[in-house]
């Protein structure tokens, strides 16, 4: 399992084809970079765009474009990013722009386009670490078979034959802002959570507008080269690896946990992670267990997790009392 703390990131905004699209693609790429670099444990982000000279001078330094998003420059940045990856870490590659399908699928870049095979070969040269690729453009699904493999999470905004402009990137980027997409509230945004958040938002968009969906996002992480539209966390299916691939630390606590030096706390954190995994396993077999028994077992696990969490807070000397009376809080923060 990689850690969000040890992730290296390359974001490429491809060729826009029009000023509006160029601005939009560059904007999303910059927004994603800013969200990543504003996180409690920011990764190194290498950003390449179609026209770096048009990047606003006010852009935060970590998100200043490293160059033009040509195929050569992208390759150079990917190889360099391979060097950024710390031990146990991984690489996140995000492609924002137009894609084309058909027998020779491409991601459109200034100059020569990028084929699935190009990217596969570049990644092979760049790193042996786990890689997550998020292709957010049209016909993205055509990249899945070539990139799929062990340790690989491939998110594609569309199936291979869907060539309309995508709505997915806007929501994928939004998943990195605000913490709402962290469904399991563990302080880390996983690749699966980012995918599900964006996929569901796209679906709501089309429903709201009364349109037939022209994009169906897929995710492949079991190495079979076939993307799934509804990845799960059940063994053998697409989704398991993605659920364990954090892309962003959303809370200080998660950063703290990752860098924990106290042996006793580390032990408690490990036990808690183990229990959380058992909750996941239990949830996957929910239908096969009588409801009463299911919730009893669930509660047992959760009470132990709660106790551990309380103990960790005590050991850390945190002031927040563990069982404060819930109040009338508004918004998304917890009431207790």
């Amino acid at each position: 399992m990689t850690s969000a703390l040890t992730l290296a990131v390359v974001v490429a905004a491809g060729v826009g084809g029009s000023p509006e699209h160029r601005e939009r693609f560059t904007g999303w790429a910059s927004a994603l970079c800013e969200a990543l670099t504003a996180a409690p444990a920011p990764p190194t982000v290498r950003l390449v765009v179609e026209r770096p000279e048009e990047a606003p001078p006010s852009a935060p330094r970590p998100c200043a474009p490293r160059g033009r998003s040509t195929r050569d420059e992208l390759e150079a940045q990917l190889v360099a990013a391979g060097g950024d990856i710390a031990e146990g870490g991984g690489l996140l590659v995000v492609l924002i722009g137009h894609g084309s399908g058909g027998p020779r699928p491409r991601f459109n870049l200034p100059g020569p386009d990028l084929s699935p095979e190009n990217l596969r070969d570049i990644l092979a040269r760049a790193t042996a670490a786990p890689v997550t690729v998020a292709h957010l453009g049209s016909a993205a699904g055509a990249f899945v078979p070539a990139l799929s493999g062990p340790g690989r999470v491939i998110l594609a905004a569309t199936r291979a034959r869907e060539t309309n402009e995508t709505r997915f990137p806007e929501h994928f980027v939004a998943a990195f802002v605000g913490g709402e997409a962290d469904r399991n509230r563990d302080g880390n945004l996983s690749a699966l959570e980012a995918f599900v958040y964006a996929r569901d938002a796209v679906e709501r968009d089309f429903d709201r507008d009364g349109l037939l969906r022209t994009e169906h996002a897929v995710l492949d992480d079991n190495g079979d080269g076939v993307g799934s539209g509804d990845p799960k966390t059940e063994a053998g299916t697409d989704g398991v690896l993605a659920s364990r691939t954090p892309l962003l630390a959303t809370t200080e606590q998660s950063v703290l946990a990752a860098g924990e030096e106290d042996a006793a706390i580390r032990s408690l954190l490990a036990r808690r992670e183990e229990l959380a995994a058992r909750v996941d396993e239990l949830r996957n077999v929910r239908g096969a267990i009588p409801e009463g028994a299911y919730f009893a077992e669930l509660e047992t696990l959760l009470l132990e997790i709660a106790g551990i969490t309380e103990e960790i807070a005590r050991l850390r000397g945190e002031s927040d009392p563990p069982a404060k009376t819930p109040g009338g809080a508004q918004g998304r923060s917890g009431p207790a």
């Binding site: 469904r183 399991n184 509230r185 563990d186 302080g187 606590q253 808690r272 229990l275 959380a276 909750v279 996941d280 509660e299 696990l301 959760l302 009470l303 997790i305 709660a306 106790g307 969490t309 309380e310 563990p322 069982a323 404060k324 009376t325 819930p326 923060s333 917890g334 009431p335 207790a336």
Partner: peptide
């Protein structure tokens, strides 16, 4: 969200 702390605190309470 098995490690969601505010919910864990409410459960304990």
């Amino acid at each position: 969200a098995p490690t969601y702390e505010p919910a864990l605190r409410l459960l304990l309470r």
